[in-house]
Design a protein around this nucleic acid. Sequence first.
RNA 1: GCCGCAAUAGCUCAGCUGGUAGAGCACGUCAUUCGUAAUGACGGGGUCGGGGGUUCGAGUCCCUCUUGCGGCACCA
Length: 660
Amino acid sequence: MTPAAKVTLTFPDGAQRQYDKSITGLEIAKGISPSLAKRTVAMALDGELADLNDPIEADAKIELVNRDDPRALELIRHDCAHVLAEAVQSLWPGTQVTIGPVIENGFYYDFFRNEPFTPEDFAAIEKKMRELIARDKPFTKEVWDREKTKQVFRDKGEAFKVELVDAIPGTEPIKIYYQGDWFDLCRGPHMTSTGKVGNAFKLMKVAGAYWRGDSNNPMLTRIYGTAFAKQEDLDAYLKQIEEAEKRDHRKLGRELDLFHFQEEGPGVVFWHPKGWTIFQQLIAYMRRRLTGDYNEVNAPQILDKSLWETSGHWGWYRENMFAAQSAGDEAEDKRWFALKPMNCPGHVQIFKHGLKSYRDLPLRLAEFGVVHRYEPSGAMHGLMRVRGFTQDDAHIFCTEDQLAEECLKINDLILSTYADFGFTGDLTVKLSTRPEKRVGTDAMWDHAERVMATVLREIQAQNNHIKTEINPGEGAFYGPKFEYVLRDAIGRDWQCGTTQVDFNLPERFGAFYIDHDGGKKPPVMVHRAICGSMERYIGILIEHYAGNFPLWLSPVQAVVTTITSEGDEYAKQVLEQARRAGLRVEIDLRNEKINYKVREHSLAKIPALLVVGKKEAETHSVSVRRLGSDGQKVLTTAEAIAALVDEATPPDVRRMRETV
RNA sequence: GCCGCAAUAGCUCAGCUGGUAGAGCACGUCAUUCGUAAUGACGGGGUCGGGGGUUCGAGUCCCUCUUGCGGCACCA
């Protein structure tokens, strides 16, 4: 008789032990101590989470995962999704289940049911879920035959599950997880029983979602939830959401009187004086950053349809364009014009004007271009997604040899710009490569992708806080691109900067330069934006700073105000002096108590309050109260103004001064 | 665009099962001249998002459009 086969397992402390092959994690845990077995909810084999009841068939590093392990959070959430599904099906028999994955901060489960769920149903569902958790049924796994599985789900009327089985590759086993009588098709792993889910869960919202993410498919009802190991963690998470909502740019935009939207202009912004000041500061900043390298231009807002036919937009992108005609009745002038959705065709026209030599390259044309795009109605979101916006756009016309250097130069500009606004973490650079539908030869794509992959490695090497990703097949039809993605205060990702190589447009418009050999060559065109959309970038800034802008961006940098009307004359002098020093200052001489005025300007997030009374008037000083601190400091007026002027120096200007 | 929800004074919101619109803040007037987060009194302000319907009667019920919100899809 041959001895039973053995497996060698390595524990986290380095200890190695031999066990009979096919031993389960649970048996191992029990062998160590019953209390350990009780605490353990899953195991990790060579770092991969697995069911505790899985037989171990090969040598591995093993870790027993208890419920407090960060890795168990994923399991808690996934198990919670299963409990949610059982609860829903037990409350509303006939509801079809589909999928229920773990996502960042929680999980969801998609259901198909003729009657939609509403948040009012949550209480009943959560109650049922608590019952199922209290029942504490073990999760048990079975591997089923593919055809049997389909038949079972077909008999249950679970058409979506049948489709899911079909989507599982033939090489993979069909796994079914039971929790009591209820079972679901699932890849796993799961914890040992429903009781391990605990009670720190909450259903968050309902939403519609297309089956398999395709808008041609039926719409399902998605229930979002979240779950944590401990109630404190759940409470902290809910608190964090609440805090994030307080800095929502739409709310702050109204409270700080920055901008508004109204019914007649869906997706287009009315910028108020304060918001527009921020906008102008931002543009001034970008303009300074372009000095020396770029030439700023301005191309028309509307152009004849024929130009957009040449560019390809009329064919590819017409659904998203606004078109305009003369509104008069004269029949002879009924040309169609389109509002520009992009600035590139305009810039190509400028490039084409006059013969260009290779000596002129790289030629960098920049524009704060206002573009209009007919975005789907459901896509609009405050300043983040609008139908009319300003791009800090530029197009670089260069040779293929210059491409890498230009991409790196743009990268430097983008990263240093973000750093100037305090975005030093949570930044992802994505390289999107050739899609199936594309123009240009494979040789061109090979070259560009090679160059850009090198640039991406360089970016990664120089900046260890930046995440890089490759999105295969996600490039534009005209060339590969980099996308720079910032994360906002509510944890949403927004694409800001972009660098896009374009093999298409110069040729479509017949743009060329004269090369060394006297021959005509189409230039490589690079589209790039730093902020992307100024509107969106300001939206992100509002949330990033929670409305407390640094002094250089603040619409109103200081308010001069008085204790009593005795100080009025002196306050006016202080105002005059501060304005002459270049500060954006306002004055508040209202006959109100100082408490009242302090409160009001603090709520308006005015960074500095310069309070003057009799004492200050006599000593040519001001009492400076800074936003966020509850004390004040008396300085001479000249000192106070000088300090504010220094602080209000934009970061790029300060850098320039320091390097000179 | 799709699913769901919502729209009442400048803002935040109340208005139960249909019976003729209310609060706080803001705004205006007057009084108050006050030392760092709300002084008091009085007053003005709404065709209840638009249109249609049911009803003796609609802010309230139904239909529709518009806009917004939460997601999904989209973001060349």
